[in-house]
Design a binder for these strands. Structure first.
Lengths: 210, 210
DNA sequence: TAGTCACAGTAACATTAGTTACACACTATT
DNA sequence: AATAGTGTGTAACTAATGTTACTGTGACTA
């Protein structure tokens, strides 16, 4: 675990902290599609992402969903942070975007480290900042872009996060993430295919140029 | 200043910290409509709000605006926090919603206090959490609500922040905040008036029941 | 091999929101 | 009182998005 921590967080945390983390934390492997956090639940430990990706969603009362952003290696979940620290309930839903490896840190240690290690404080502040910026970027997308542009942005994010120019999703799944209907997505994707920018197949989309 | 700090932040900060704040900070009075922060600017000090309210907006490249949330007494600006700590540029615009009184804290002290006072750390974390939640609430509004519902929510927020059931704004100003056109707002407001929920006047809207 | 199911394509239509254009009313100034 | 400027009301239209309904097709399995 020490080695994996070093690779992903070594430039951030000092040696002693890395050792402390490896002592009190456990590695957790999750599978694509696993639900990691549900809205309304309390959170018992905080994840550091070693590899893979986690999809963070917002859900309204009727169960409608909207993709907020992805977490990748080197990231942590700001919502978890504030839930742990402030003892609030989770306001979001987290799903493994692919098979991923996480290091789970017990809540108790987090507060201790906040006092003890300035690198930990910086990391926490930086995480908050990144998440706030991602949330605001999401606001930009919904407020200022039309659905066709949002779809393009979605595909771009997908191929980046998955390091794969083939997006393995059905139109319905994309529709859920963007909070629209399957028909709308099929329509816009077909237009992108006609324009020669993607290639449509059952259950997958091959991206040519975006 | 000590007294005002005590009234608004006394339950949060310990006595020594309150004294430190009052020693190194200056009071600043701003007038309704004053622009406090522009996107792209660097920030030199952090505001604690004593009274009044500050409107936080997002602006896109074309200058289109969208209201993110209001800051009220007891609040601080999370964007300022992360700008100061992480030395990023501002990504938002801040305008005084009404005449307000602020206490400006020099950046330098902030990092120092983060080490020294646990109450300061809690305050900073809590602020981040609140702002992240406000941003997500804004996402909810744009993603899940229609314009008529967003307008209702806007009016509710306005009368709360201003402690006044008369909203002193033109339709055009509301349209800017919600990132839509004046005609759309006039249309929806007229419907609310017909339904007996508001009363329309030049430059102001009297809220009856929302 | 027939039947079932999930996925995708498409037309027709409904609803919501944005745009353009113009009339009119209120305010302040000369 | 004439004028100009700003704010509001409204109609008519366009564009974007959402909905319903139906078709076809590939994949799996009973």
């Amino acid at each position: 675990m020490i080695e994996e921590l070093n690779n992903n967080y070594g430039h951030f945390f000092e040696k002693e902290l890395l050792e402390e983390i490896s002592k009190v934390s456990v590695t957790k492997e999750v599978l694509e599609g696993d639900i990691l956090i549900k809205p309304g639940s309390y959170i018992k430990s905080m994840p550091l992402i070693i590899n893979g990706a986690i999809k963070i969603l917002r859900e309204d009362q009727e169960g409608d969903e909207l993709l907020l952003y992805f977490l990748e290696k080197g990231d942590t979940c700001a919502m978890t942070l504030s839930c742990c620290m402030g003892h609030h309930k989770s306001e979001i839903k987290a799903i493994a975007e692919m098979d991923s490896k996480l290091i789970m840190i017990p809540i108790k240690k987090m507060e201790e480290w906040t006092t003890k290690y300035s690198s930990w404080r910086s990391f926490v502040f930086e995480s908050y900042h990144k998440r706030l910026m991602e949330a605001i970027e999401t606001i930009d997308s919904i407020a200022f872009l039309n659905m066709d542009e949002r779809l393009l942005k979605y595909l771009k994010d997908k191929i980046k996060v998955n390091s794969d120019t083939i997006v393995h999703n059905t139109h319905q799944e994309i529709a859920y993430d963007l909070h629209t209907s399957r028909v709308v997505i099929s329509r816009l994707l077909k237009k992108l295919e006609v324009d020669g920018r993607i290639e449509l197949n059952r259950n997958s989309i091959k991206v040519i140029s975006l």
